[in-house]
Amino acid sequence: MFMASGKSRGSSERPIRVLLAKPAIDGHDRGVYVLARAFRDAGMEVIYPGLLPTPEQIVDIAIDEDVDVIAISLLNGSHMTIFKKVMELLRARHAGDVAVIGGGIIPPRDRPRLERMGVTGNYGPGTPLETIITHVRERAAEVRRRRRVA
């Protein structure tokens, strides 16, 4: 549809809200900007809080901005601790319904453990943007279904 502006959009099609976060001591933000742009061009509202938010800040922002999805990119090997912390905080704040998606440099052996925590995707370098966008859409749709019945 040409000029699919929000005004003509039904409430069922309201834009997906994604928090894109790059926590821990990791300043490599090129990739995160590529993602931000891809998500925006896919019609999503992307909240980017800048570099190095703490897990606490990520969860605060996710709640205040009422996002459907948190997408976290980590390239420095701290994924196991950071993701675990984010998941714990989300549960503690009764925000366990937000979907958490991971990406970055994540060794294959860590992926099943992340999945068990509830962190999905866990994409590495070279993943086609379309794959990531599709996954975000699927998880967001899940979240919205759950919220509707809640």
Binding site: M3, A4, S5, G6, R9, P15, A36, R37, F39, R40, D41, A42, G43, M44, E45, V46, I47, Y48, E65
Partner: peptide, 9 residues
């Protein structure tokens, strides 16, 4: 964006 409906906040 008037084209995609998305935005960078």
């Amino acid at each position: 964006s008037p084209f995609s409906g998305g935005s960078f906040l």
